[in-house]
Design a protein around this nucleic acid. Sequence first.
RNA 1: CGAGGUGUGGCGCAGUCCGGUUAGCGCACCUGCUUUGGGAGCAGGGGGCCGCAGGUUCGAAUCCUGCCACCUCGACCA
Length: 495
Amino acid sequence: MAKGKKLTTRAENYPEWYNELVKKADLAENSEVRGCMVIKPYGYAIWERMQAILDQMFKDTGHVNAYFPLFIPKSFLSREADHVEGFAKECAVVTHHRLMASPDGKGVVVDPSAKLEEELIVRPTSETIIWSTYRNWIQSYRDLPLLINQWANVVRWELRTRMFLRTTEFLWQEGHTAHATSEEAIEEAERMLGVYAEFAENTLAIPVIQGLKTERERFAGALETYCIEGLMQDGKALQAGTSHYLGQNFAKAFDVRFANKDNKEEFVWATSWGVSTRLMGALIMTHSDDEGLVLPPVLAPFQLVIVPIYRQDDEKELVLNKVAELAAELKAAGIRVKLDDDDTKKPGWKFAEWELKGVPIRLAVGPRDLANGKIEVARRDTKTKEVQDLDDTFIERMKKLLDEIQFSIYERAKNFREENTTQVDSWEEFKAQLDKPVPGFIFAHWDGTTETEEKIQAETKATIRCIPIGNPAEEGVCIYSGKPSRQRVMFAKAY
RNA sequence: CGAGGUGUGGCGCAGUCCGGUUAGCGCACCUGCUUUGGGAGCAGGGGGCCGCAGGUUCGAAUCCUGCCACCUCGACCA
């Protein structure tokens, strides 16, 4: 495994730091396929933790999993006008189904006789294929609500990609629900936004702002898009999850109707909601430092790593026996433990390696400790270490320490966000704030028009990330147009 | 899609301007010995059609033409 010793620091070059960290921590690497990454076992283990926890949250809120096709007939996509307009520019299209030996004898070419009658689109999202299916599943109000989620890969042919943050193919989950009333669908969209916010804060330890997108930033085909927004260490916002209230748009496009209790026919009300492997990027950019990844204990594939230290064979046996015993006790207490007994690496190497990989707690045990009944405990988040008594309360203390780390990195991220959240009341102030090294979240008055929104973006690259939920009403004037405004909205530069 | 840049053992690079024995360095890898509490040391060793295709030349990693790929930054987007 090729590895330089040090990461580029965040201060030197933030994007470079990010890329190096993703590769050196063994999370992912660029593949031979343009814009597509290989998620490596360690990175995938983190994603699997996210999946497991989210999946349980979905099930606890009444959802079930299903799976729909990867391919979508081209005609389906165009059924909903806004939807096709939103995705048309970034679709991978399957046109043929057979290859043949090349006439010049070199390799294979597409067999022109195997042209598809109707092209297939590799799904950029599944609303269309799912709603075409729901048509057959829903006849009566008794079939509602229909609460389905799928874990899948999707393809969006982006012009520029970055590992985890924006790749051509990415993994995600997409919930697609059908309801008898508008109220119920809105309630569902808001409920799932709440699930995402809870997951971000409790599992990922990422504080998020919940809000509504402006009309311009809305999902293609949605009446309302809810989102959670996190603030990364470089002062840019990252959209970490979205939940859409789709109204009856897709029901109308795919003719999905149901008989209500009064035996009147109505179109079904819809939501969709999703989070993707982009959460990995959010995780990295919220907590990690110049030494590498910092993982929240709830999510870490290994919560605690034990590094045994010894010189001669007799010491080795003594130490390994003791740490194996300790590892077993920690595991029995429900802690995910890695015992790094790799004999080909030195302790110093292991320390650096596990720091790079963000394991929350590291224990080091050598003959010296054994003789004194001690153990060295190092925290990844604070990079502090202390020698502790290895007594019968030790396991319990480690469990508490994991809780403390989870809480502590959340608090640290929240403090960072609060320190980098500002209110501005003039265009000059606004621009000055955006020119700072860490622009952060900026609350300012906006006249509510798309025109102004676009002009602000054109001049500053900042966008309205959301109109926060529960935003207080406040009379003011738009920082750009000077027109009246009833509330502040949240601006930021975004990923 | 615009602007820059880069393609040389697994990884990171030098060499290219000014063509000339056997293409070099660091890391990684293999063997052995010594080591092991913050990315070990010494000794020995293996691995390259220098992005691809043409061309110029006695001779090309180096010069010329064309192509391809990737990266960074912008515009567009989860």
